[in-house]
């Protein structure tokens, strides 16, 4: 039996960029009210507006937490605008896991947090 594919489990068990960072330029906080999953992101920008450091904290299911780690990886070197323009479809592909519509919400919480949009 499979639980989740390797990439998700790897990021869940070995989260990248987890924790607080010093003097963040900007903060994002998000919560999925319907299930209680939470994530916060902090970023430091370089002189050209690119993310040079990111730190996240959160609690919740495997999917939301692994997705935060995967997103954090993707954020480095991008401007906030560039991160915000990542499409849901593209990000879901990046997770390399098949998800039912209900669980896609868990997966998209980190991205929507940085997009500063409500999860519909």
């Amino acid at each position: 039996m499979d639980l989740y594919q390797q990439k998700i489990m790897d990021h869940y068990l070995h989260p990248r960029h987890q924790g607080k960072i010093g003097k963040p330029t900007k903060k994002f906080t998000g919560e999925n009210i319907s299930c209680g999953d939470k994530v916060d992101f902090e970023v430091v920008l370089d002189s050209r507006g690119k993310i040079k450091q990111v730190g996240w904290q959160g609690s919740g299911c495997t999917i939301s937490q692994a997705a935060a780690s995967i997103l954090a990886d993707e954020m480095i070197g991008k401007t906030i605008k560039q991160v915000q323009s990542i499409s849901s479809d593209k990000f879901l592909q990046d997770l390399e896991v098949e998800l039912s519509p209900a669980r896609q919400k868990c997966a998209l919480l980190p991205l929507y947090t940085v997009k500063e949009e409500e999860l519909g």
């Binding site: 039996m1 639980l3 299930c35 999917i63």
Partner: peptide, 19 residues
């Protein structure tokens, strides 16, 4: 997490609720 558990059970045809 309860949601993960419900997903794993759903994969085996077992319908439970989490939340």
């Amino acid at each position: 997490h309860a949601h993960d558990l419900a997903t794993f059970l759903a994969d085996r045809g077992i319908c439970i609720r989490a939340g």
